[in-house]
Amino acid sequence: MYIKKILLAIVFIGLAVAAYFAYYVYATMFVSNTNFNNDVAYIYVPTNASYAEVREQLVPLLKNIDRFDALASQKKYTTNIKAGKFAIKKGMNNNDIINSIRSNNLPINLSFNNQESLGKLAGRIGAQIEADSLSLLKAMQDTLFLNENGFTPATSLGMYIPNTYEFFWNTSAEQFRDRMLTEYQRFWTDARKNKAEAIKLTHNEVITLASIVHEESKAHDEQPRIAGVYLNRLRIGMPLQADPTLKFAAYQLPEYQDTVIKRVLNIHKEIDSPYNTYKIAGLPPGPIAMPDVSAIDAVLNYEKHSYLYFAADAQRLGYHKFAKTLSQHNANARAYQRYLSSQGINR
């Protein structure tokens, strides 16, 4: 009888332990452990991150970090961290959370346009992916990479076609640069290549001219006409005389740092620079900014006409008046200069 009592006690204790263990396992693995009100929260796990770094991001998102720790250790997540952007949905249990941050790296939509230099582009990209701006700029400026792929420091900005692209957050600087080369090559379809060949411009020259067109006008419907003016000038050996190139040349000089040139003056035309298209013949060495695709296609699909000149239209701001003769152009230019003076814009 005594032995039966002992055996029964052992059985009850065993059942109690088993029940507790079963509950603990259930609570650890299958009970919701999120502690936020939004539908989803995101964590960003850097390359080569430790579990402590991941845990630091999880603490404010979870009700019971200790139970998460136990399961993470059991499932060997603590020694097998994956880098990337991961989602934790409201109501997830620890098992689901671990599965999500172990294997469900989410892509991001990375966007850029209208960047004036590689440095500014690197800053824009560095704010969206793991790679920092310094490592991005170093990769973009790598001499070996540029030489192998037909670019120079002056033309390198033209490799980056503005758009929205899908990337993983943990993309490295070199991976970003190499992907952009692939996108650049994809951009140059046979149709675009044939059009560039027809106007006797290289791909780099097309983008250089497009950057000038884009700085002259953001109006998509006018860009092909402006492109036609510059191509007409190139054909007859006339200097481009593009005011945006003067501004670009000026901004490279110490005295013009942190200034905004609103009115191009004769003094700007005397700047000694390969970007001064009032002094040099043909195109400058590279793009003066990042052109939109609309401007690139405007060059490739330029409007055929006889215009050689254009001046800003004071009565239709953002657009221009076009002329075939210098006398007509001078009249248009004087009208715009009077408008600038009336607005107190003298420099």
Score class of each variant (00 low, 15 high):
343 Q>M: 13
307 Y>V: 11
64 N>R: 14
47 T>I: 13
340 L>N: 08
127 A>T: 12
110 L>K: 09
227 A>C: 04
80 N>H: 15
161 I>W: 04
169 W>C: 05
281 A>D: 10
312 A>V: 01
285 P>I: 12
108 I>V: 09
317 L>H: 06
257 Q>C: 05
71 L>Y: 03
175 Q>A: 09
21 F>N: 15
281 A>N: 12
346 N>Y: 11
43 I>H: 00
218 K>W: 00
73 S>R: 11
198 A>C: 07
251 Y>H: 13
270 E>S: 06
319 Y>V: 09
189 T>S: 08
212 I>E: 00
218 K>G: 03
257 Q>F: 06
154 A>S: 13
342 S>M: 13
62 L>H: 00
122 A>S: 05
205 E>K: 02
11 V>T: 14
215 E>G: 05
223 Q>W: 05
283 L>R: 01
12 F>C: 15
2 Y>F: 15
217 S>H: 01
342 S>H: 08
167 F>D: 10
270 E>T: 13
125 I>E: 06
144 L>P: 00
8 L>S: 03
4 K>T: 15
321 K>V: 15
271 I>G: 00
182 T>H: 12
151 F>W: 10
13 I>A: 12
214 H>T: 13
347 R>W: 08
302 Y>A: 12
28 T>M: 09
220 H>Y: 14
24 Y>M: 01
115 Q>N: 15
250 A>C: 02
105 N>E: 13
127 A>Y: 06
277 T>A: 04
46 P>W: 05
293 V>D: 08
308 L>I: 07
286 G>C: 03
311 A>M: 08
275 Y>P: 03
306 S>V: 02
195 K>W: 03
266 N>G: 06
291 P>T: 01
119 G>S: 12
274 P>I: 06
101 I>H: 00
148 E>N: 15
51 Y>R: 13
213 V>W: 04
281 A>L: 09
341 S>Q: 12
158 G>S: 13
238 M>N: 07
7 L>T: 11
229 V>G: 04
128 Q>N: 06
206 V>M: 00
36 F>G: 11
267 I>W: 04
128 Q>T: 02
61 L>H: 00
305 H>V: 10
198 A>T: 07
82 K>T: 15
255 E>K: 02
203 H>G: 10
226 I>G: 08
321 K>R: 15
78 T>N: 09
24 Y>L: 03
237 G>Q: 00
122 A>R: 00
184 Y>S: 14
226 I>V: 15
232 N>M: 09
17 V>T: 01
278 Y>F: 10
261 I>V: 13
133 S>H: 14
140 M>V: 05
122 A>Y: 03
101 I>E: 02
81 I>S: 09
91 G>P: 13
64 N>E: 01
38 N>H: 11
178 D>S: 11
64 N>T: 07
259 T>W: 00
199 I>S: 07
245 T>D: 00
76 K>C: 09
